[in-house]
Design a protein around this nucleic acid. Structure first.
Length: 214
DNA sequence: CGGCTGATCGTG
DNA sequence: ACGATCAGCCGA
């Protein structure tokens, strides 16, 4: 039942002021925090290892660029701490958390987590295998690729569009808690992925990840 | 290991 | 039409 690799269950959750800051600050600060979601297999907890910042209406890579406030982008305009989950390429979900405050659509794309405890690892593997589908004969899901990448992360944590526009400060089933501390010197920055259309904004170093222990 | 490609659908 | 992607396949 109790395995190794178990982090304390009692981490406090992140409250509104944490999210009420700009997207870059929230991106960096989210590294090491724990994303928690209740799934049909039980609660899954993942330590956030990789994020990207989307900086609102002036950011050419943002869905809200130029002030596009539509049904889809609406959650980004809500209070910091609101989830923004959307479908990409017709088959995957990307999970973001709104930053700043009502009306200012900063957001943080969660790009990677690692399981925070053995139960979470087990459940993530089940969710991945379930998704692999009826014909899925590829049975091995490597730990490295269990939940790295926005699409895989959503599968491994059971996050779907049903989890869109949730206030993660208030929800009992979808939220973020404190986690491991990450030293600033262990944070790497790079270019955001898959936004080639965003011109000069494609070169901004607004992707953050924890340097892996080599 | 790195590069290419098909899958698949809501949104603008 | 097209994309904030992934898995599988290919060749090296």
């Amino acid at each position: 039942m109790t395995g190794k690799n178990v982090l304390p269950q009692a981490f406090p959750r992140l409250e509104r002021p944490f999210f009420a800051r700009d997207g870059i600050t929230v991106s960096r600060e989210l590294l090491g925090k724990i994303l928690v979601h209740d799934t049909p297999f039980g609660t899954v907890r993942g330590i956030i290892t990789e994020t990207e910042s989307y900086m609102g209406e002036t950011d050419k890579a943002s869905h809200a660029y130029g002030g596009r406030r539509t049904v889809r982008t609406e959650p980004m305009y809500h209070d910091g701490g609101t989830s923004y989950v959307y479908l990409i390429y017709g088959m995957y979900c990307c999970m973001n958390i709104a930053a700043m405050t009502e009306g200012i659509p900063h957001a943080v794309l969660i790009r990677g987590v690692v399981p925070a405890d053995d139960k979470s690892e087990e459940r993530m593997t089940l969710l991945r295998k379930e998704r692999a589908g009826s014909g899925g004969r590829k049975t091995s899901v490597s730990l490295k690729h269990l939940a790295d990448g926005p699409g895989r992360l959503c599968i491994a944590m059971g996050i779907t569009r049903a989890d869109n526009d949730v206030d993660m400060v208030e929800s009992e089933s979808f939220y973020v808690t404190e986690g491991i501390s990450v030293r600033p010197e262990d944070i790497c920055a790079g270019k955001r992925i898959g936004i080639d259309y965003a011109q000069e904004a494609a070169d901004y170093l607004w992707r953050f990840y924890i340097k892996l222990p080599q």
